Amino acid sequence: MLAVLDVDVDPDLVDLALTHRSFAYEHGGIAHNERLEFLGDSILGQAVTVKLYRDYPDLDEGELAKRRASLVSTVALAEIARIIGLGAFLKLGRGEELTGGRDKSSILADTVEAVIGATYLSAGPDVATALVLRLVEPLLVDPDRFGAAMDPKTSLQELASARSLGNPAYRVTEEGPDHDKTFHATVVLMGEDIASGTGSSKKNAEMAAALGAWTRLSGRGEESVDLLATDGPDAGTGDAR
C-alpha cells in the first residue's frame, strides 16, 4: 500500500486507515479507521479548495463550490480508490467481504479519507496535501472525466444520446437491515448490462454505476465497450460489467 501511495507513512497508521469497523467488531472491538476518516475529510477539503482557488481564478464562488463538492464526493473518491487499487488492501469483516465490500463506493471513499488522515499525522500537512493533489489529478487533467464525476448520470445520458443508444435504465436491488442498507445498481443500455455500482443509498449506487458506464463507453476504462459495433441488444447475453 505504501508503494502505491508513494509516501513514507507509519505502517501502523496505514494499517489503521485500512481497518473497517466491521473487521474491528469481529476482532474484539479493536480500533478502526473512522477517526482518521474524520481528520482526512477536513484535509482533503482544504487541499482541494486551495487548488481550485489558485488554478481557476476566473470561476465565481458558486462554480468553485460545485467543483469542490464533486471532487470530494463519494463517487469521485471511490473512483480514485479504484484507480490505485485500494480495495485489495482493505481489512473487512466477513459480512462485508461476502457482500462485495471491497468495491463498495462508500467504504472505498471513507478509506481514502482515512489514508489522507494517516498521512497527515505521520508525515505532516505538506506531504498530506501533496498526496491529495496526486490522488485528484486524474479528474483534474481530464475535463470530460471531471464533468462526469460532477454529474455522472447526466454525463452518461448525454453520451448515450450522442451515440444513439437510447436512455440508460437502472436496475437497483438492496440488502441489509433498514438501518444499514446497501444498494446495488446496474446500468442497462440497449438491453446490455454495462456497469454496476454500490452505495449506501439508491442515489449513490446509481451514480457509481453511471460513472462506471460512462468510463467504459468513453473508452477511458481498462475495458471499453461499443454497443454500436454489435447487432443490437440481442447480439449477446453476457454480462458486460
Rank of each mutant, 00 (worst) to 15 (best):
T129P: 09
F146W: 11
A118H: 11
V141P: 02
T129K: 13
V127T: 15
P138Y: 08
L135V: 11
P125G: 05
F146I: 00
A123H: 04
A118N: 04
A148D: 10
V136H: 03
G124D: 06
A118V: 10
L139H: 13
L121R: 03
A130F: 13
L139A: 11
V127L: 07
T119I: 08
L131I: 11
L133W: 11
A149G: 09
Y120F: 14
F146V: 00
F146H: 05
G117I: 01
R134L: 09
A118W: 01
V132T: 06
P138R: 04
G124I: 12
T129W: 09
V127H: 01
G147P: 06
L140H: 11
G147M: 04
L140P: 02
R134A: 01
L135W: 06
L121K: 09
G147L: 03
A118T: 10
G124C: 08
E137Q: 15
A123S: 15
R134W: 12
D151E: 14
P125W: 01
D126H: 12
T119S: 13
L139G: 09
V127P: 04
D151Y: 10
G117W: 02
G147R: 05
L133H: 11
V136A: 06
A123I: 13
A149W: 06
R134I: 11
T119N: 03
A118Q: 06
Y120L: 12
L140F: 10
L140G: 07
A123R: 02
D142W: 07
A149H: 00
A118M: 08
L121E: 13
L135Y: 12
L139M: 13
S122R: 02
T129C: 13
Y120R: 05
A149V: 11
V136I: 15
M150G: 07
A123G: 08
L131K: 01
E137G: 04
L133G: 03
